[in-house]
């Protein structure tokens, strides 16, 4: 390194320090100090959802005016809310309403359903619940022309998949899964839920390693905000059920998908037992690959009861 380079380097450093000092970088630091990593709220679905997002600093932390937002709930099965195989319609409605309040330009609720689309939108109650906000909001794209081939640069098992156009075009992705067991993946939470935004999820079962490819997928579909609906927890027989439903009245919110999933694993009983987050391989791998943190005991958690 010669003198010129050394000076340049010094100057750059000085500039950054000045920028920080003048307050350009400061607000973020301050927020980081007060906003919890995980917000856990007990209450009825609508109120708890709103409170959980508010604890994270409100929806304006995630959604800027004019943003295009995609909300990904679970509505893959034609079953009603009490079966807990789909996200509670009230949770979805409140998230959508908060996005609108934050000034979102376009809000879509999307899922590539397993069961017939109409039945899913109807029986889950999600389309009906979102109607007051907009009647053109809940869609179940299934045609390949609505998807676009996308590379997964950091994929270890799956390196390419077709993702919904609307998701690729969106500014903000919000994962809004229901907390449920899944007989292949252990649990189906925000990370597993991203499989509902791609065209071919079967291939993740037979060609790729399911857990590793879930993590691969989440490297490109990393939710900006995760709101896990634990108002009802499908503790056994997921993902479709019917199974044992635990009424937990809990909403878990975080901007870290892995942390939210990890907390949900440890917070609820699965098949009558307690598990550590690391016992779900895709959560453990996501943690190891730096996608998020599963060591919930080291995270800042704010829990309130309404």
């Amino acid at each position: 390194m010669n003198r010129r380079e050394f000076l340049k380097c010094q100057a750059t450093g000085l500039l950054w320090m000045l920028a920080g000092g003048s307050g350009i970088l400061l607000p973020k630091r301050i927020m980081a100090g007060t906003v919890p990593d995980l917000a856990v709220v007990k209450g009825n679905p609508a109120a708890a959802t709103r409170a959980a997002v508010e604890l994270l600093g409100g929806m304006k932390q995630f959604v800027k005016p004019g943003n295009r937002v995609v909300i990904k709930p679970n509505m893959s099965f034609p079953s009603p809310p009490e079966r807990a195989s789909n996200t509670h319609p009230e949770v979805v409605r409140v998230i959508a309403a908060m996005c609108k309040e934050a000034g979102a330009d376009r809000i879509l609720v999307l899922d590539h359903t397993l069961a017939p689309e109409e039945l899913c939108m109807e029986n889950s109650g999600i389309r009906e619940a979102c109607k007051p906000i907009s009647d053109k909001m809940v869609f179940t794209p299934s045609d390949e022309s609505l998807y676009k081939a996308t590379n997964i640069p950091n994929g270890m098992s799956m390196t390419r998949t077709d993702i919904m156009n609307e998701v690729l075009k969106s500014d903000v992705l919000i994962a809004a899964p229901v907390a449920k067991s899944h007989s292949s993946a252990g649990v189906s939470l925000s990370m597993k839920g991203m499989m509902g935004l791609i065209y071919n999820r079967r291939v993740m079962h037979w060609r790729f390693d399911l857990h590793t490819s879930i993590v691969d997928l989440c490297t490109v579909l990393k939710a900006d905000l995760t709101v896990i609906d634990g108002t009802r927890v499908l503790s056994t027989n997921g993902p479709r059920g019917p199974g044992k439903v635990l009424n937990k009245n809990t909403i878990i919110a975080s901007k870290d998908m892995v942390a939210a999933d990890a907390y949900a694993v440890s917070a609820f009983e699965w098949y009558g037992k307690r598990f550590k987050p690391g016992q779900v391989r895709h959560i453990r791998e996501a943690h190891d690959r730096g996608l998020g943190r599963m060591d919930v005991e080291n995270l800042k958690i704010k829990a309130i009861n309404l």
Binding site: S181, H182, G186, G243
Partner: peptide, 26 residues
């Protein structure tokens, strides 16, 4: 709403999809 009878799916000794505790990294 049709919950399975209490206990029907229990007692098989495993929860599908989860790994044993010793394999979990803590």
């Amino acid at each position: 709403y049709d919950p399975r009878p209490e206990g029907e799916d229990w007692g098989k000794g495993f929860a599908p999809g989860f790994e044993d505790d010793n394999s979990g990294g803590d």
